[in-house]
Computed example of a mutant assay.
Amino acid sequence: MATPLGSLRRLVLAPSLHSVSFAGRKFPVTRTPATDRLEMIPQSVVVGFEWGIESRGTAEVEQRLAMVEPEMRGFAYEGAAMAFTVRDAIRGHRTGELILGSGRPHFFLAYIGIGFAMARLPRPLWRKILPDLSDIPFHPTMSWLAVDGYGFDLAYFHTARWVDQQQRPVPYPWEGHPGYFLRAVDQGIGRALWFIHGGRPTAVAAAVARFAEDRRADLWSGVGLAATFAGGATAAELGRMRDTAARDGYAGDLAVGAVFAVKARHYADFVPGHTVAAASALTGLRIEEAVDLADRTEVERTGTGPEPQYELWRRNIRTQWLSTVVTPSHKE
């Protein structure tokens, strides 16, 4: 049960469901059953945020999150992680408790929720924003998903500045790699493009093409992750999008995002049909093959090189996929 202070936090900080809807954001989306389903994702994030921002502690939030349907549950955890991160910036360890508890299967999305909080917190607070997740084998490698989440938030809520005008934020030395920060931001912007255009592959591809060439690889990677994890398009549409990316030399980048999406869904022990279809259309791989590709190309948690371990893992996936590329089939 929420306290009076919790109710006040929710009133002041929680966005409305309409404000995150495609109509509320004034995105160029024609409403269909597919876009209605896609729109449930940001709304599920809001629901998780509301529970996290008003609750007394993690136990009650975890009980509520357990009632969310499996396909949307990870997104609700994303919102709860965002809320707890905002609260922990003042005092507490709620985010770590959530992720190391019932949120462990959804820790990929929890990182993204931390990134959403980063978009609302002053940068001096970022230094201690990550909880101690050393018990999770993919930490801190996958913590770059927080920067991805930060980029997504910028594009989704301030589309004119970060998408239309294509501005870029000031770099930040995340995990000691300020030079990679903008690349991870672009991966998040690429994910946002999938939602901004309602999962319409032709419009998404055109949006990527409007960006400078040196940004497109990371944007395509974000598109692949969103299309595979969130769904919203048919296998035929995805196949044509892959052909478009391939013509410009970005099929491998699209595949990297798709493989990471499969890995995250598989880790959460729920792989919806649209993820199966997208993995096949974008990579030519079955779910178990995509998971195996991610697992056998994984890198050590920490490194001292000029690039983060996260990018080395991504590069390994791309190189291995391109060396054994399977041309996905799709029906027109």
Rank of each mutant, 00 (worst) to 15 (best):
A2K: 09
P4V: 09
L5N: 02
L8S: 11
R10T: 05
S16I: 13
S16K: 09
S21D: 08
S21G: 09
G24A: 11
T32K: 08
A34C: 10
A34K: 14
E39A: 03
V46W: 03
V46A: 06
V47Y: 02
E50H: 03
E54A: 13
G57Q: 09
A59G: 07
E60H: 09
M67E: 15
V68R: 00
A76P: 04
E78F: 00
D88F: 05
D88A: 03
H93M: 11
E97Q: 15
L100N: 10
S102M: 10
S102W: 00
P105Q: 07
P105F: 06
H106P: 11
F107I: 13
F108C: 06
L109G: 03
A110R: 01
G115V: 07
F116G: 06
F116R: 14
R120P: 09
R123N: 05
I129M: 11
D132C: 08
P137G: 04
T141C: 12
L145S: 01
G149D: 07
Y150T: 08
F157L: 14
A160E: 13
V163L: 04
D164M: 12
D164S: 15
Q167V: 12
Q167Y: 11
P169V: 09
P169M: 06
Y172V: 03
W174D: 04
H177Y: 15
G179K: 04
G179L: 07
Y180F: 15
F181I: 01
D186A: 12
G188S: 09
I189W: 00
A192W: 01
W194T: 13
W194A: 14
I196M: 00
G198A: 02
P201K: 00
P201D: 05
V204G: 06
A205S: 13
V208R: 01
R210V: 02
F211E: 02
W220Y: 15
V223R: 01
G224W: 02
L225H: 07
A227R: 02
A230P: 00
G232M: 04
G232N: 03
A233N: 07
T234M: 09
A236M: 03
A236T: 08
D243H: 08
D243W: 04
T244F: 10
A246Y: 02
D248T: 12
G252A: 02
L254K: 06
A255D: 10
A255V: 01
A261N: 07
V262D: 00
V262H: 00
K263F: 10
H266D: 15
F270R: 04
V271N: 03
T275G: 06
V276H: 11
A277H: 05
A281N: 06
E288S: 14
T297D: 03
T297R: 05
G303V: 07
G305Q: 08
Y310D: 10
W321E: 12
T324A: 15
V325M: 15
T327D: 12
K331T: 15
K331R: 14
